[in-house]
Design a protein around this nucleic acid. Sequence first.
DNA 1: TTGACATGCAGGTAAATGCCTGCCTATATG
DNA 2: CATATAGGCAGGCATTTACCTGCATGTCAA
Lengths: 112, 112
Amino acid sequence: MTRREPKDADLVFKALADPTRRELLDRLFERNGRTLGELCEGLDMARQSATQHIGVLEAANLVSARKRGREKLHFINPVPLHEIYERWVRKFEGARLETLADIKRVLEGDGR
Amino acid sequence: MTRREPKDADLVFKALADPTRRELLDRLFERNGRTLGELCEGLDMARQSATQHIGVLEAANLVSARKRGREKLHFINPVPLHEIYERWVRKFEGARLETLADIKRVLEGDGR
DNA sequence: TTGACATGCAGGTAAATGCCTGCCTATATG
DNA sequence: CATATAGGCAGGCATTTACCTGCATGTCAA
């Protein structure tokens, strides 16, 4: 019923949560500005399916496209990736060392 | 039909693609070793639903848990996040500067 | 103009996801 | 022991997702 508006982070992570879409990003990294047809080549799925995947990447703002004649050219936008890093990776980088000590401390029952 | 075995990256990104699960990670960062009950508090969903979310985080190896008596204690594991960063963020960080130039070059039709 | 080519659009289906309710088990504690 | 507390397990339902097929549109080039 109540439709929640998806946040940016949702869109980006969801977009990345599929191997086909990550493959598409890799292809664009290898050579930016590919057409839709080039991107879909050898993907082992119908063009229309790949198009949907590209749509997801565009919705997440990871890819932007523009037309040139009858072609659609695609470009990577790395900004959302960096934002994800700042908010969801960097923050937790320090956590590793604490972990073992925390586990011990808590398990030994000094509690909370 | 043919069930594909999900890769690590799939599990991690999928786990992160939900605001409830990200909230859980934040709660664990704020204080590691929380019990299930503590984690679920105030989450605006049934405990069982939150438990499923925690299951997704565990499947992605972002959280590991162990029992103490009748309680289940949860701990962050930041390693998968770092791996994601190495493979899927760092790689694309350099792409930004190229982008505008690429777009121009391609649009002006020197083609591929 | 006309045919070939690149892409867009509209459903349709099977599986996965996210939430629920109901009930069971195990551990603590009076 | 009896009860409360922490958590586990099973099944059900609505929505979303990831594919597909079929057809329409727009652009280029002979």
